[in-house]
Nucleic acid binder design. Structure first.
Length: 212
DNA sequence: CACCAGGCAAGTA
DNA sequence: TACTTGCATGGT
């Protein structure tokens, strides 16, 4: 049986095409981007990423040695720059102590262990952890974000106050546990959200899903 | 001008 | 446990 979730995916894919996520050159860049984009438009994050690249700082070794004050200045455009600089430091501390800044070593850990480790880092919550797992390390976990919740609650697929794990369980039980599928599905939901399901100006009448 | 964007942790009761 | 608040820039 083909699930309803799979049908929605097919509809989105045929409408929008492949999204080529995550837009980054390296897994480490995905991880940094995942923290920078917390409650922030990707456009603002891109400026911060470009700034780090300009000084060739977007690698674990260089970023690890960067003073927090300088880091916060460089990522200013991403907003919340003081707290995000701190969060990047906490993450880099974790990366150094647990994996010696070695991303390949990190990717050898199991999904379950990694998720627990990431969630224990101050500044990394469920969405950031799962974004890192899926988009940087190619682990099969479904990312839930504000767009996903908004789209599926407006379509009455989930409750408006549905918790993170609850929503994630729905997707993961309803789909094949395939990192490629989860990757494309979430990217398509964000595309749909940006184009048709903004908070203030939803364009539901022309939404490709046309169900509400 | 107000509102929002690919969240999270800390504070309060 | 459950709710509220702070964090901050840049685009619409």
């Amino acid at each position: 049986m083909t699930s309803r979730l799979k049908l929605i995916y097919k509809k989105l894919y045929s409408h929008f095409g492949p999204q080529a996520w995550w837009p980054a050159e390296t897994p480490f860049e995905v991880m940094v981007g995942a923290i920078l984009t917390q409650n922030t438009s990707w456009q603002n994050v891109e400026l911060a990423i470009a700034n780090l690249k300009k000084y060739k700082l977007l690698n674990p070794g260089r970023l690890c040695k960067l003073p927090q004050r300088r880091l916060s200045t460089l990522i200013r455009s991403a907003g919340y720059y003081n707290i995000k600089a701190k969060r990047l430091r906490y993450f880099l501390d974790f990366l150094l102590k647990r994996y010696g800044l070695d991303i390949k070593m990190m990717s050898r850990s199991s999904l379950k262990d990694l998720r627990q480790e990431l969630l224990a880092v101050n500044g990394i919550g469920p969405e950031t952890a799962d974004s890192i797992l899926l988009y940087a390390l190619n682990k099969p976990v479904f990312v839930i974000d504000a767009y996903t919740k908004r789209i599926f609650s407006r379509h009455r697929f989930i409750a408006r106050d549905c918790g993170y794990e609850e929503a994630q369980g729905l997707f993961m039980r309803g789909l094949k546990k395939d990192a490629g599928l989860f990757n494309e599905y979430h990217a398509l939901l964000v595309k749909l959200g940006k184009d048709y399901c903004r908070k203030n100006k939803p364009k539901c009448n022309i939404c490709p899903l046309k169900q509400h």
